[in-house]
């Protein structure tokens, strides 16, 4: 099934209404407009040879590459073959129909920018208290965010000179956490919950939030920003738990640090 670009522009149901957007139908660009050329590489679990190359071409064809050519095939051990394939993609992109992504509501800052924002706005270090609460002994999440070692190639919050990190570790009592946060004059409290048996993560997070709201009734001293993280919070909203922010799987320390600057130091994030 080959679709010509021009035909699609004239008749495609997704064609943008504005005439100016007519040129918004795009294809990959190799060295000529509209050539649709792409490259890809992959391995197949079969011995190298003519039959393996035919299999690679079959995959390329099913992926919409026509014509396609195997430019490189190499055995990786007796049972695998690695391929590099070039081909013409037959898919079209109606660029006009691609919405501009919402993005996060705050810019992602470098460690330097975070430090500068804190130094400028607070004139002291920003205090973060972190813990795994309840019976959860899985500190992997909180450690990934807080430990210098960090996560996904990013250093944790301990690495930020202007952030003072208190990592209370695992199985921390909610009362203990509230007391420590008060004693440290915490700006933010980070709680990680990995164990989800019988919705323990939701229960624990609500209990934690309630304790902080009790300790800081409206009008009293400033309540620390409440942040929870874990792989299974995707079914709830922050307001369901009584916290300020939920982070999910794959969150990096920089995202958390940038959020803290955004939420605690309004107007301080460099745009």
């Amino acid at each position: 099934m080959t679709t010509d670009t021009d035909t699609r522009v004239a008749t495609g149901p997704a064609a943008p209404a504005e005439p100016a957007a007519a040129g918004q139908i795009i294809r990959p660009y190799g060295d000529t407009t509209g050539d649709g050329m792409v490259q890809l590489s992959f391995s197949l679990p079969v011995p190298a040879g003519k039959r393996a190359e035919a299999a690679a071409l079959s995959l390329a064809g099913q992926m919409g590459l026509d014509p396609a050519s195997v430019v490189h095939a190499k055995a990786i051990g007796p049972d695998f073959t690695f391929f590099i394939v070039y081909g013409r993609a037959n898919h079209l992109i109606d660029y006009g129909s691609i919405p501009v992504p919402a993005g996060r509501e705050y810019p992602l800052l470098t460690a330097k920018e975070v430090n500068l924002a804190i130094r400028t706005a607070l004139n002291r270090r920003l205090v973060v208290v972190g813990a795994c609460i309840g019976t959860d002994a899985h500190t992997v999440g909180i450690d990934a965010i807080l430990n210098v070692k960090g996560f996904a190639g990013e250093k944790g919050l301990e690495y930020y000179r202007e952030i003072q990190v208190v990592n209370m570790g695992a199985q921390v009592d909610v009362d203990e956490l509230v007391a420590r946060a008060t004693a440290e004059n915490a700006d933010a409290v980070l709680v990680s919950q990995v164990v989800t048996q019988r919705n323990a993560h939701l229960h624990n997070a609500k209990q934690m939030a309630a304790a902080f709201h009790d300790a800081h009734p409206a009008g009293s001293a400033r309540r620390p920003l409440l942040v929870v993280g874990g792989p299974r919070f995707d079914t709830v909203r922050p307001e369901d738990l009584g916290v300020d922010r939920i982070f999910g799987r794959g969150t990096t320390p920089a995202e958390v640090a940038s959020y803290l600057v955004h939420a605690l130091l309004p107007g301080r994030s460099p745009q």
Binding site: S41, F42, S43, K74, I76, F80, F82, A152, G153
Partner: peptide, 14 residues
């Protein structure tokens, strides 16, 4: 592919 994913078979071979 450092920092992207744990090495694939082909990453190691390359």
């Amino acid at each position: 592919t450092e920092g992207i994913h744990t090495p694939w078979l082909s990453d190691r071979d390359l």
